[in-house]
Structure formats: C-alpha cells, structure tokens
Amino acid sequence: MKIKANCQIAGIGIYFPRQIVTSQELMREIKSEENFGIAENWINEVCGIDERRVASAEELPSILAIRAAENALQDSGVQPSEIDAVIFCGISREWLEPSVAHKVQHEMGCTNAICFDVSNACHGFMNGILLADNLMQCSDATHVLVVAGENLTDITFDYVAKLRNKTAEFQKVLGTLTVGDSGAAMVLTPKNKDGRGFQYYNFHTDAKHTDLCRFSTAKEGGYDGQMVMGKISSVMIRLHASIIEQTYQSLNWKNTDIDHLICHQVGQKPHIRMADMAKVSQSIAPISYKLFGNITTATIPANLYNVKPNCGEKILIAGAGSGLSISQSGLVF
C-alpha cells in the first residue's frame, strides 16, 4: 500500500537505561558451551551484538517513553499543552487497560491531547507515524507525540532460565537474547511549503509468516513462544527487495540520492543485506545493534536521533516487524 505523506519531524528523543548486560554474560549464564556446544562469544561474533541496556524494576514502559518524550519536546520546542494526540506504539505495556498513552499524556501534562495505543511488534513506531500523519491530514491536529517504551529483556531473562535448564531450543529462541530496553519519541507536525518531511510510505504485510516470531504469556508464568531469527531476517529482506523499486519510483529517487539508510536492526548480517537490498553503501547505514541490541520499536527513531541529519538530506527508512510487516518511506530532513 502506497500512501502520500504530509508530516515532518519537529523533534526526536531517546532514552536508554543505565544498566549494561553483555552478550557474553548472557551466554555464560545459560552455560552455552556446556549445554549447547556454542562459544560464549557467539552472539558477538555472529550477530555483532556486544551488549544491551536493561531497565530497572521502576523503569516501566510508560516511564521509558516519558523520558524519551521529555527529550523530544525539548528538541522540538513544542509545549506539552500544544500536543493534540499521544500515540504509544510499543510492544511492552504495564497493563491491559487503559492505554499506556493515557499515563504518558497525564505525566507529560499533554492535557489537550487525545491518546491511544497501537501495537504491531517491532514495526509499531512506523504505524504510529502513519496514524499521526493521517490524523493531521483529516483533522485540525498540528502536533502529535508518538512514543514507545520497551522493557523486553523481561523475556530475555525468562528464556535465560529456560536455556540454563535446557527446557528451550537455542536456535528457536536465540532472538530473545538479542533484545535491549529503551524509550523513543517523536513530535510530528504537518509539512511546511519547503517540502521537507516524509514524502511517501510504502507498507506491506505477508501474514503467513506469523509463527516465525510470536510470544504470549504462559499459564504457568513467564512466556511461551519462539523467535526464529534466521528465517525472519531472510523473509524480511526478501519482502523489502520485492518493493524497493516501487518505493524509489514513488519518491522519484535513485539509490545514489540516498544520504542515510535507517532500517530495523536485528543483527550484523541482516543489516549488511539491507544495505545491499537498497543498493547503497553500508557506510550510510548507521548501526545501533552493536551496543544496544535489537531495540525493537525504538530502532528507527534512535538511529535518526544519533545520525542528526543535515537539513535537506534524503533518508530511506525501512521498518519491519514480526507477522510479518514491513514499510519503506522517504524522508527529506
């Protein structure tokens, strides 16, 4: 689905917990060499992930989102009272109802904002941007705050215990050892006449791959599911390759026009293949997985924040999430 875009980024904020847990610490904890015959540096060498951040017990999803939102509002110069809508789009949540966006709205003082949650695995933030854009096109909204807060290392440590006790299959749950906690936020506003902002969105879903990455809470406590990273990555890249020319045509861009490739990141090899898919140099595709792991919905905003693009630069954004959903969009910063 190709959708005309009409919004731009007024501000971006990110937040990372202080605690660092290395990949070798996790592998040592599951006794990877003894239990599975896999070296302790396997995640470092094969996935390219050295460490990740882990939220404290007090850093609930809403708190991570609020910390990032404070930074985004400061970056944008927008006051909380000027926010017309708050959209929380993380995977993690501290309750089933009400929406986590309600807590963000209240704590941030966004008293004039409507609020709701949207969830679509790691692709949630791109869906949040799309909904914010559509909201601005069909209403008088001028400032929308899109936020996410992820403490998915809860799943990590549940599976560390399972792997240590050899009650889980390493290859099927490897992905649980690669995620990291974070918060991310964007303030979005309608495009100005200078044309900067999002240009087009190209969204696609192939739901027959739902079973490759799925998690639910188990009746006996903890989590039940699998994250088959090799297959997920292969499908993700194949789907992106199938629509990339369509995206370039809609944007009227060539691969040589791209200044930055900002894409979802699950590890080293898929990241390299994503650059190849877009026919761009790996040097323009910033890396977050090495020090932060797979930061799920926060990946796109975190990498945009760290790149700090120059005014007028062209950015290709490639999102993805289990299910499997992908998107490609062009952004003129």
Rank of each mutant, 00 (worst) to 15 (best):
D154Q: 11
T189C: 14
Q246E: 15
L304F: 09
G330V: 04
I326V: 06
Y15M: 00
I272W: 05
F116G: 08
G230V: 14
D276Y: 06
F157M: 07
K191N: 12
A207G: 15
F203G: 10
S182P: 00
G319V: 08
V144R: 02
K193H: 14
I63Y: 00
V187N: 09
K166R: 15
S322I: 03
N151Y: 09
K269N: 06
T22K: 10
K279W: 07
L239K: 06
D154S: 07
F36C: 12
V54G: 06
I317L: 15
K31D: 14
I262L: 01
V54I: 13
T217L: 15
A68W: 00
R93C: 01
R196C: 13
S242M: 11
V307L: 02
C263H: 13
K308R: 15
S281C: 02
S325R: 06
I91S: 00
D224E: 12
A101L: 04
A185E: 00
K4A: 07
V307R: 07
V173P: 02
E45Q: 12
T205H: 08
H106L: 14
H209N: 10
S327D: 01
E25C: 08
T205S: 13
E97H: 08
C7E: 12
Q24I: 12
N71T: 14
R196H: 15
S23N: 10
D211C: 03
I272M: 11
N112A: 09
Q74W: 06
I326W: 01
D158T: 11
G195A: 07
P286H: 10
P190I: 12
R28W: 07
G149R: 00
N41K: 11
K166P: 04
S56F: 04
L60I: 01
S233G: 06
V235K: 10
I129Q: 02
F333P: 00
Y248S: 03
M236E: 09
Y223T: 12
A72Q: 03
Q24Y: 09
H102G: 01
K308D: 15
A121Y: 09
Q328C: 08
A10F: 14
H209M: 01
M227A: 12
R67T: 01
K162F: 02
N294S: 04
Y15N: 00
V78R: 06
L316A: 14
F198Y: 02
T217P: 03
T217M: 13
T153W: 09
M108K: 04
A320W: 13
F333C: 09
L26P: 09
K191C: 07
Y305F: 12
C213P: 02
E313Y: 03
D211K: 12
H102T: 08
M236C: 15
I326M: 00
G319L: 04
D117R: 06
S288R: 12
V100A: 10
K103I: 14
M126E: 05
Y305P: 03
M126P: 00
G321D: 08
A168K: 09
I114A: 15
A101K: 13
R273G: 04
L131I: 13
V235P: 10
A278M: 04
F198K: 05
A278E: 02
A241C: 14
T210C: 08
D257C: 05
A278W: 00
R52P: 04
E51L: 03
H102V: 11
Q282E: 14
H102L: 10
I114Q: 14
D133L: 04
F125L: 01
K4R: 05
A141T: 10
I91K: 00
G312F: 04
I237N: 07
H260Q: 14
S325H: 10
P17N: 01
